[in-house]
């Protein structure tokens, strides 16, 4: 029963459950709204862009980020907490030989605090099923042609961990500041459906 996570029935179930918990006095709806609003206000892909830019300019940070992202994020005032439970983040690095792509084939697990709200296509059955079996074709649909000899690694966030891609720093950017570098990064680059 791993494929019954379609968005609309789950959303309806969650609404019903929330209403029931409120009716029984087990949760305070204002408290729940406050938690969700506070989390949503801080959840932005700009956070992910800053992480990438810092990793590009600071080799020590890059190493700490890849070794254990949860311990490195506080250096930028960020964390994987803030939701209802803290989550483990794995940052996976693109290289000349390896390109990484993230997906959650079971539902739509995604590091919201660093990437912001997930795009609709990320939650679609089409993306979730195609990217694990034919990632090169999916990337082509995004207008992203990888060299044939680049190895593709797909990461399925099917359990408790979340993933973010560290894209390769574009050529010809040696003179740019950290803020200018951050402005080059896109949300799709953090998912792996774009080069940067």
């Amino acid at each position: 029963m791993s494929d019954d996570h379609d968005d609309s029935p789950i959303a309806a179930q969650v609404r019903d459950l929330e209403a029931l918990l409120e009716a029984k006095g087990l949760i305070d709806p204002r408290e729940l709204d406050q938690v969700l609003e506070a989390f949503a206000a801080k959840a932005s892909p700009a956070n992910g862009f800053r992480v990438v830019a810092r990793a590009w300019v600071d080799e020590g940070f890059r190493e700490r980020l890849l070794a254990g992202a949860n311990d490195a994020l506080p250096e930028l005032g960020l964390s994987m907490g803030g939701g209802l439970q803290p989550q483990v983040l794995h940052v996976v690095e693109n290289t000349e030989d390896v390109h990484n792509v993230i997906v959650c084939t079971l539902c739509s697990c995604y590091p919201l605090s660093l990437l912001g709200p997930s795009p609709t296509w990320y939650k679609s059955t089409a993306y979730r099923s195609a990217v694990v079996s034919r990632p090169r074709e999916v990337l082509e649909q995004f207008g992203f042609d990888l060299p044939q000899d680049t190895q593709i690694r797909v990461w399925d966030a099917n359990a408790e961990s979340r993933y973010m891609v560290l894209p390769r720093r574009p050529d010809g950017t040696d003179e740019l500041t950290e803020a200018e570098l951050a402005a080059l990064v896109t949300r799709n680059g953090l998912i792996g459906t774009a080069a940067v």
Partner: peptide
């Protein structure tokens, strides 16, 4: 997994 393709898929199990 699929009988085709040259990529890899990593899961948490």
């Amino acid at each position: 997994l699929f009988g085709h393709g040259d990529h890899s898929v990593t899961l948490s199990l």
